[in-house]
Nucleic acid binder design. Structure first.
Lengths: 242, 242
DNA sequence: CGAGCGTTTGATCACTGTCAACCGTGGTGG
DNA sequence: CCACCACGGTTGACAGTGATCAAACGCTCG
C-alpha cells in the first residue's frame, strides 16, 4: 500500500508524458507546480467502473492519463446515447459546470489512470494563472466545436461516411498522442460505435466487412489497421494530412 | 446621427432588459459597470447581414440583445449545416476560442440588435470578477450540454420526435425571455429547420400540416401557436413543465 | 462446460429522401 | 404597370438506405 502510494505520488503534472495535451500546456514550470498541487491522482480504474453517474453532484473534472472513457446519457424511455469517447489528455465532465450535477454517465472502457481536479479550486487558480484560464476556455470551446462537427456528420452523412469519419478522427487523435495513426486498438465495442454514430450494430458490422473487402482497413477483433487512409479521408469528406 | 449615437449610448448592461439571461447575471451592480465598459454596442443589423464568416479572425464574441441569428458551417462539398439558432441573451462565437478563427458563419435572420465583446478584454476582466468567470464557464458548459442533447435527438429520434422537440425547445427559450411560450414567430424558414434537424424540407412541410391536423399546433406562415403542449412534449420525449 | 455477450450475415420492411409539379408572394426590370 | 423570376412552401409518387427481425458463431468468464 505504501509502495502504491509512493508510486502515485511520483505522478506529477511536471513529468507527465501527456502534459502538452492536457491543462498544463500553456504554463511555465512554476505555474505547473501550482496546478499539480490541486490535482488528485485516483486509483487505477478498471473496465466498467464509473467516473460519475448522471445526477451526481458536480465537484470535479477528470483528466485521462491513460486508458479510455465513454460518456453517455439515458433518456426517459431508457435508451442510451453515447455522447463521446475520451482518450489520454482529454478532459471529462465539462458539461456539468452549468448545472452543478453531471448530466451524463462516464464509464471506463479499459483499465485507465485518471486525475481528478476539484473544479472550484481550478476556477480559483485560473484567476491567477492567465494561461490556465486560457487553456480551460480553449478546451471548452474545442468541445463545442467537435460536437458541431459531429452534428454535421449525423445530419448530412450516410453510414459509410460516418464510419470513415469516425475512424479518421480516432486515427488523428491517437497520432497526436505519439501513437500510431495507422494501427491501434478500438477501445469500444461495435455496439458502442453504432450507438455513437446513430447506426444499428448490424450496419457497423457490415461496414467493417465491406471496408475490409475494399481494402480500406483490416480488422481483427478490436485491432484495426488503416491501410488506405487517403481513400478513407476522402470518404469521410475531410482532407488527408498524412 | 447624434441622436442615434445618444440612443445607443443609453443602452447599458445595467439597464438592459435581458441582463438576467446574459453575462451580467451573477454580478453585483458595481461589477456590471466594469463589464459594461468593455461591451461595444453595434449598429442594428438587418436580415442577411453577417456577424462573422468562417475563417475570420476571432476577436470578439457577440451577445444578442434582440432578434435572432443562425450559425452554420459549409463543408468541403459545399453543403451547408446549421449548427444553432440564437435568441436574445444568448452568446454567439464561443466555438472560435480554441482556434482564434471563427469556424462558422453567423447570419442575421431578422433585424437584430447585437452587443460585441472583445474576448481578450473579457478574459482579463473575468480574472478579476469571479462571478463573470463562473458565468462564462457556465455558458460554455451549457452549450456543450445543449449540443449533446441535440446529438441524442439526431441519433435516436424520428422525424416526428425531432420536430416536436425542436418546437418545445423554442417554446421554452421564448418563455424564459418573458415571451409567450405558446405563441411566437419562427425566425427561420422551413428549409432552415430541416437543415438543422437533418430532415428534408418536404418532410418538415409534411410535419407542419400533420401536426396541425392532429391539433398539436396551428401555423400561419411563420406564426405558430402551440395548442397541445402536453402531447407535443410527450412526443418530444421530454416532460412538460407547464 | 455452459451462459452470456459481442459479432457477423441474411431477409424483409418502412421511414424518409429525392424528384417533380404547383402555388403564392415579393422584388426587379423592361 | 405589368411581366417575369426567384424563393419559400406544399403535396404527391417513388425508391433507397439503413433499421429490424432472426439465426448462428466464437470468446470469455464464472
Amino acid at each position: 500500500m505504501s509502495s502504491l502510494k509512493s508510486l502515485h505520488s511520483e505522478i506529477k503534472c511536471q513529468t507527465c508524458g501527456i502534459r502538452q495535451l492536457c491543462l498544463p500546456v500553456m504554463l511555465a514550470d512554476a505555474e505547473i507546480e501550482h496546478l499539480d498541487s490541486i490535482v488528485q491522482r485516483k486509483k487505477i480504474l478498471k473496465k466498467g467502473d464509473f467516473l460519475f453517474s448522471a445526477g451526481d453532484d458536480f465537484q470535479e473534472i477528470y483528466a485521462i492519463r491513460s486508458g479510455s472513457i465513454k460518456t453517455y446519457t439515458i433518456s426517459a424511455d431508457g435508451t442510451e446515447q453515447i455522447t463521446g469517447f475520451y482518450l489520454p489528455g482529454e478532459i471529462v465532465g465539462l458539461n456539468a459546470i452549468s448545472t452543478s450535477h453531471y448530466p451524463s454517465f462516464a464509464k471506463v472502457l479499459e483499465t485507465s489512470s485518471i486525475c481528478s481536479i476539484p473544479f472550484e479550486k481550478l476556477e480559483t487558480l485560473s484567476r491567477e494563472l492567465a494561461g490556465l484560464q486560457k487553456q480551460l476556455f480553449k478546451v471548452l470551446s474545442g468541445e463545442i466545436r467537435d460536437e458541431q462537427e459531429l452534428m454535421m456528420l449525423l445530419n448530412k452523412k450516410n453510414a459509410d461516411e460516418r464510419f470513415a469519419a469516425f475512424l479518421i478522427n480516432l486515427s488523428t487523435r491517437f497520432k497526436r498522442r505519439n501513437l500510431s495513426g495507422h494501427e491501434f486498438l478500438l477501445p469500444m465495442t461495435r455496439s458502442d460505435i453504432g450507438n455513437y454514430l446513430g447506426l444499428a450494430v448490424e450496419t457497423v458490422s457490415r461496414l467493417v466487412t465491406r471496408f475490409q473487402k475494399q481494402a480500406l482497413i483490416s480488422i481483427q477483433e478490436r485491432h484495426i489497421h488503416i491501410t488506405d487512409k487517403h481513400k478513407l479521408s476522402e470518404l469521410a469528406g475531410t482532407v488527408c494530412h498524412v
